[in-house]
Design a protein around this nucleic acid. Structure first.
Length: 139
DNA sequence: GCCAACGTTGGC
DNA sequence: GCCAACGTTGGC
């Protein structure tokens, strides 16, 4: 299993919106960046990801799961853009803020720290374990 | 194929 | 609201 991080502005699409979609999940559409798209194409069913709130909150707020592999983005006719579907799995007992992540010596290489603009990112198993522990998530 | 101009993102 | 970083676009 691989680990990822999905970033969204909560004013546009937040954790509560994701939870409201339930087990069916929702397309992670709207990504118009090749790197992010390529990561989504690599995702497998059951892969896990962090749900991160950018700008407002700036924190990991929950865990999601890939529930549909890469398919054309329904919000565009442009054949270049694909996306996966994700569903909420568990909320963070405690949000893990960007400040905490930056301050943690073993998380300084996270893509979130190094390339904050990338909206879909890979997370290493070690990073996954540490952030889950900080968030109080048993994953 | 290079590079300048431009638009977008996101932290501060 | 500002600005730095980055990706994309388009002229040459």
């Amino acid at each position: 299993m691989k680990y990822w991080l999905f970033k969204s502005e909560p004013d546009t699409w937040g954790w509560d919106d994701q939870v409201a979609k339930g087990a069916a999940g929702e397309e992670w559409h709207g990504v118009r960046n090749y790197q992010a798209r390529n990561f989504m194409r690599q995702m497998a069913l059951g892969d896990r990801g962090f749900f991160y709130h950018s700008q407002v909150g700036k924190a990991v707020v929950g865990v999601v799961e890939v529930c549909a592999t890469s398919h054309p983005d329904s919000t565009t006719d442009d054949p270049r853009w694909d996306c996966v579907d994700i569903r909420a799995v568990a909320p963070a007992q405690r949000p893990v803020t960007l400040d905490e992540i930056k301050a943690h010596p073993d998380l300084s290489d996270m893509v979130l720290v190094k390339n904050s603009r990338l909206s879909v990112q890979p997370v290493t198993p070690e990073e996954w374990r540490i952030v889950c522990a900080l968030a109080g998530i048993d994953a």
